[in-house]
Design a protein around this nucleic acid. Sequence first.
DNA 1: GAAACATTCAACCAAATGGTTGACACGAGC
DNA 2: GCTCGTGTCAACCATTTGGTTGAATGTTTC
Lengths: 112, 112
Amino acid sequence: MVKSNAARLDSVFHALSDSTRRSILRDIAAKEKTVGEVAKPYRMSLAAVSKHLKVLEEAELIARERRGSFHIVRLNAETLKPAEDWLAYYEKFWNRQLDALQTYLEGEEDDD
Amino acid sequence: MVKSNAARLDSVFHALSDSTRRSILRDIAAKEKTVGEVAKPYRMSLAAVSKHLKVLEEAELIARERRGSFHIVRLNAETLKPAEDWLAYYEKFWNRQLDALQTYLEGEEDDD
DNA sequence: GAAACATTCAACCAAATGGTTGACACGAGC
DNA sequence: GCTCGTGTCAACCATTTGGTTGAATGTTTC
């Protein structure tokens, strides 16, 4: 299924909205892991972790590879780029607000 | 209620996971608007937009101010910064092929 | 082929989500 | 005051979410 840009952002941001899933991404960023290794640190069932992995996979944030009876999971970081690009657009707004705050704190000299 | 960092990221990413809400943020980024003005472009009820605004407000992505009988809504862009910081961590992983990534991880003595 | 292991699938559950409609609350203006 | 306009709240509904448990699938090993 080919997703529109909006749908991709939907699924990526949704995938990132759960701390377990963000944590999993950190865990596998440095080095790929098996599903069992990924699940070990978490206090939930393996099936629950498997579901989280499915969410991450459908958002294309991770890729799986079958190696014997193990399923290897690795980060697919490029998928995060559109999300970061989306956020980058707003940098100018928070900088502007910080500038405004700074100006205010400095005592309302006229600027710009 | 004071949120943990994780809970803040949860709510911010969740707020961003809906294209209507992302669109609303764009709409008000340049200039504050009333709730009615925000709602106008969308084919859903005013109450539905009001709910989206509530999600954005609880994520602290927007702020409201009452002006007469109008509710003014404006962007609170700084709240996006932690989300961008979170994503920035992964920049080093994208644009890198698996082999290059492995090399990087195995020989971290030289930075780039 | 049977046993043991790694993982997913299916059914279920409670809570949250995104939408609707209708009633309510609050200002503004006559 | 009464009414109009702006917006929220409450109740409802269908769907999704994040978790559980137990059965099913696939692989390795004996």
